[in-house]
Design a protein around this nucleic acid. Structure first.
Lengths: 128, 128
DNA sequence: CAGTATCCAATATGATACTG
DNA sequence: CAGTATCATATTGGATACTG
C-alpha cells in the first residue's frame, strides 16, 4: 500500500486517512450529536460525558479544518456559535453509524445490551 | 451515552469500544494482511511499510489479547509463529473493509485515485 | 458564551542494541 | 526467526485559571 499526501499530510493507506479524521476518543461523540441537528458549543459540552473543555475545543477545530463540520459565529451579546455537519460530514456520519452498529454487535457477544442501558439512563433522567 | 465496563476496561460508547481495538496506525494494516491468509511474523514485517519491530510486536499482542487474532507457535528450529484471524477478527475485518471503502471515496473527492496508485506500485515491483 | 493559556501525566511511536 | 529492552520524542488528554 503506497503512501499518499493530501493537504501536506502523509497517509499510509485509506483506513489511516479516515482514522486520522475520526479516530481518537472525542471525534465520534461530537459528530454523533451533530448527526441531525446544529448545536452550540455549550450544548455539546453539556451533552458529552467526560469531555474536557480543552478536548472539545481541539476536536471542533480539527473537524472544522478537515471540512467535516461548519462553524457559524453570530456576533450577538453574548456571542453565539453553532456547529453543523458539512456534506463531507454527512458522508462520514454514515460510517460512524456503521462502526457504532458493529460495536453494538460485539458488545452483545460480550453479553452487554448497550441499547437497553441507554433506555435505562433515559428513564432515570426523567425520574429526576 | 452511558459508560460500559468490559474486561475491566471502561468504554464511553460503542464507537469507542471499536476504535480502542482497531484504532491507531497499525491495527488495520496488520488485520488487512491477515484478511484471507495466515502469515508469519517476518512476512508481516516485510509486507507492512514503515512499521517498526516494536510496533508490530505490540500490535500483535493487543490484537491477540482482544481475541481478534490467533497466534500459533511451532517449536521447530528456527521457531515459527503464525497469525490468523479469529471469528471475532473476521467480523472486524468486514468493518475495516467498510472504513477502507469510505476512505477510498473521500480520497477520490480530493482527486486521488488510490487504487490506481496500488496498480502502479505492483507494476514497478514486477519490473524490478 | 465560547473559548485561551499553562502545567502535567500517560500513551504512542521510533531508533537502536541485544537474545533464546 | 521472533522477539525483548532501553532511550528518546511527540501527541493525547486532564486540571486549573483566565478572557473578549
Amino acid at each position: 500500500m503506497p503512501d499518499v499526501i493530501i493537504n501536506k499530510n502523509r497517509f499510509y493507506n485509506p483506513v489511516d486517512y479516515i482514522l486520522r479524521q475520526i479516530g481518537g476518543t472525542w471525534k465520534a461523540p461530537v459528530l454523533w450529536r451533530l448527526k441531525a441537528k446544529t448545536l452550540r458549543y455549550s450544548e455539546l459540552e453539556k451533552d458529552i460525558p467526560h469531555i474536557s473543555q480543552k478536548m472539545l475545543t481541539k476536536t471542533l477545530k480539527e473537524l472544522e479544518s478537515d471540512g467535516i463540520i461548519l462553524k457559524k459565529t453570530y456576533a450577538s451579546v453574548p456571542p453565539r456559535t453553532e456547529y453543523s455537519l458539512t456534506a463531507k460530514g454527512k458522508k462520514i456520519i454514515t460510517l460512524v453509524a456503521t462502526i457504532r452498529t458493529t460495536g453494538l454487535e460485539l458488545m452483545k457477544d460480550e453479553g452487554i445490551d448497550y441499547e437497553a442501558l441507554i433506555k435505562e439512563e433515559k428513564k432515570n433522567a426523567v425520574k429526576k
